[in-house]
Amino acid sequence: MGLKDFNWEYSYKTSQVRAPGEPAVDILREFYVPLLQRIVRYDRVAGFFRSSSLALASRGMTSFVNRDGKMRLIAGVDMTPKDVQAIINGQHAILESHLEQELTGKEQWPEEAERGVELLSWMVAHGHLEIK
């Protein structure tokens, strides 16, 4: 299914709410996952970036990577040390086993943080993500 075949909304306003405390849009499930499942190139400028966002969107990322998708991201400098280290590791094509040895305290990370950092490093190492 291509981009034109999906029933996209005209806009996705994450600031609106349905009920008190309930967002009007689930931006991840309604926009990002379907988008990533259909594209092969994704360019984005982000004020900040966290590897956990990759983990959350992993269902879409799997399809994106399987189609040899390429992502380019320009992110603000507000990144965690773990994310910076994952990017450095990926740029040097260090596999997951070396990432585990180099990053101390990994056993204390929440599972979603661990998956996000590993996915971030893997995507950089395999040419699916260029980040500046």
Rank of each mutant, 00 (worst) to 15 (best):
S53M: 15
G69L: 02
P81D: 14
S15Y: 11
G69I: 03
G2V: 04
E118K: 08
Q101R: 10
M71G: 07
G127K: 07
G105L: 09
G60Y: 13
S51F: 08
S15P: 00
L35R: 09
N7S: 07
E130G: 11
L28M: 07
R44I: 11
E22P: 02
V124G: 11
Y10V: 13
H98Q: 15
S97D: 05
V84P: 01
E118T: 14
L35H: 09
G90R: 12
F48Q: 01
I27Q: 10
G69F: 04
L103Q: 11
L3F: 04
D26W: 01
G21V: 02
Y12Q: 02
A86N: 07
Q101A: 03
G21S: 00
L36V: 06
G47R: 01
L120D: 05
G69D: 03
L99Q: 07
S15T: 13
L119A: 05
F49Y: 15
A55L: 04
L56G: 12
G2R: 11
D26H: 13
D5M: 10
H92Y: 10
G60D: 09
E9H: 09
Q108M: 10
E100R: 11
V77P: 04
F48C: 10
P110Q: 09
V17P: 02
M61W: 11
R67I: 00
R41S: 13
S63H: 08
S58L: 03
E130D: 13
A46I: 07
G60T: 00
K70S: 07
V25E: 00
L129H: 11
K70L: 06
Q37T: 04
R41V: 15
Q37L: 06
N66K: 08
D68F: 08
G116F: 08
R115H: 14
I87L: 00
S121H: 02
L95S: 15
V33M: 05
E130V: 03
E22T: 09
L3R: 08
Y42P: 08
D43S: 11
R38L: 01
R59P: 00
T104Q: 05
N89K: 08
M79G: 02
R18N: 15
D78K: 04
T104G: 06
T62V: 14
T104V: 02
E96Y: 13
G69N: 00
L119H: 02
V40T: 14
S121L: 00
E9L: 09
T104K: 07
R72Q: 04
R50A: 03
L95Y: 12
I94R: 14
L54K: 04
F6Y: 12
H128G: 03
K132C: 00
P110M: 10
E112L: 07
I27M: 05
M1Q: 13
M123S: 06
